[in-house]
Design a protein around this nucleic acid. Structure first.
Lengths: 151, 151
DNA sequence: GCTTGACCCTGTAGTAGCTACAGGGTGCAG
DNA sequence: CTGCACCCTGTAGCTACTACAGGGTCAAGC
């Protein structure tokens, strides 16, 4: 009885990670290739469980694979300053903030477009109108000048 | 001199869309295959320009390719009700809202983790600690019971 | 001892929405 | 007639998985 030997299925359940995803992490080198049983099954221990948990939490927080790779590397040298860790996290926070800002701007525009729709016919739909190029503005002549003259 | 014949490069400049992207839209059937010149160059007219502009604006607003396909289809039957258009837009707005909510939740968590870091050594870094599995909690025995007993 | 069914294996292809070549042809100015 | 900007097709790459196909392994039950 070896309670610390886990199959990939066990790891999958414990970490709420699909089996395929675990194999994928191994393929891309995020997880090391584990020991194998006689029947060629992957045999994991607590180390791998910890590492996968770390990866999952980082992924849930939106860190990218490469960032996680770096974080895992850093987490092994316990004595070094954690400035680099802090920098990665702050960078990620900034990325998230900028994504939020983008989405909020988009949301505002989308909302304003939708609020103009009276739900009549498509011919007079404000949503379609907002997407279609306006009738007044044509192709800026500047852009095509060279070509227009040369034809 | 035919000022309304545009090459793919012209279309690219006018709509701020990469040439490859225009060809990609054609490949996936979002744009129809245009007429060709004697030298096998794509020759676009104002119709295609309008259609591509529509696509770009919709993409900028975050609509997916399939939604745009539907919107383009709907926009051609001018007399029908624009309820379907409205529904797609509202669905998209809801998706955006839920993405924003997800990101804000993530942002809060990330921020709270970062704020705990004193920037000492990695061994005592709160960020790494927050990601690593806590020492107290082990693998829930329940999950592994069957297997543990059987080995 | 044999079957059944749940699990595991490898390898490949698909998802969204492009982007980036490689290896060629076209067209116009100097 | 040469050089350069542009165009063509076709394919592979990107993120982070997910979903098969076509097999092998293992423990339980009859």
């Amino acid at each position: 009885m070896n309670s610390s030997v886990l199959t990939i299925g066990d790891l999958s359940k414990v970490t709420s990670t699909k089996v395929e995803t675990i194999r994928y992490y191994e393929r891309i080198g995020l997880l090391a290739a584990p020991a194998r049983t006689a029947g060629n099954y992957r045999a994991y221990g607590k180390t791998e469980l910890g590492r996968l948990s770390f990866i999952r939490r980082a992924r849930d927080l939106g860190f990218g694979i490469d960032q996680i790779r770096t974080l895992l590397g850093l987490s092994e040298s316990k004595k070094r300053s954690c400035k680099a860790v802090d920098a990665i996290a702050r960078q990620h926070l900034a990325d998230v903030d900028s994504k939020i800002a983008d989405l909020m701007a988009l949301r505002r525009e989308l909302d304003s477009i939708i609020s103009q729709c009276d739900c009549g016919t498509i011919g007079e739909c404000r949503i379609i109108e907002a997407l279609a190029p306006s009738r007044k503005a044509g192709v800026p002549t500047r852009v095509l000048e060279r070509r227009v003259r040369s034809r």
